[in-house]
Write a protein that binds this DNA or RNA. Structure first.
Length: 107
DNA sequence: CCGTTGACTCTTT
DNA sequence: AAAAGAGCCAACG
């Protein structure tokens, strides 16, 4: 049968966030705002919710998503772990903040 | 179906 | 600069 099953035609809001997030290169970070903006919406919160559910972990680099202010925001597995992962990828965190001017990745 | 909550962000006080 | 309010969307009870 030609069951399309998972057609990439109607991805859920969450799945779209993951796909977009997967495009972020290693060593860079993005913001909830940038993702929502690419999705054509202003639901910054819905994006954060999607990350918290994150059914594709660790395939989806949800740790590369931070606040628009450059703050880390939050992390389901522990914010400390998020900092460590970013640091391991080459992202330097100064004063609990990330320099979006250098590490911020936009679409 | 309605109200509340949440890994957010912007504007106003 | 810090705090409070408003706005947006999805998931849960």
């Amino acid at each position: 049968m030609i069951a399309k099953s998972k057609v990439s035609k109607s991805l859920s809001f969450n799945e779209r966030c993951y796909v977009l997030l997967r495009k972020v290169p290693k060593g860079k970070v993005t913001t909830y705002k940038a993702l929502a903006n690419e999705l054509g919406t202003a639901a910054y919160r819905a994006v954060g919710n999607a990350m918290n559910k994150n059914p594709h972990a660790p395939k989806t680099p949800c740790h590369r998503v931070i606040n628009a202010d450059g703050r880390l925001g939050g992390f389901a597995s522990g914010l400390e772990n998020k900092k460590k992962l970013l640091k391991a990828e080459g992202v330097k965190i100064e004063n609990e903040k990330i320099d979006l001017d250098k590490y911020g990745y936009f679409f």
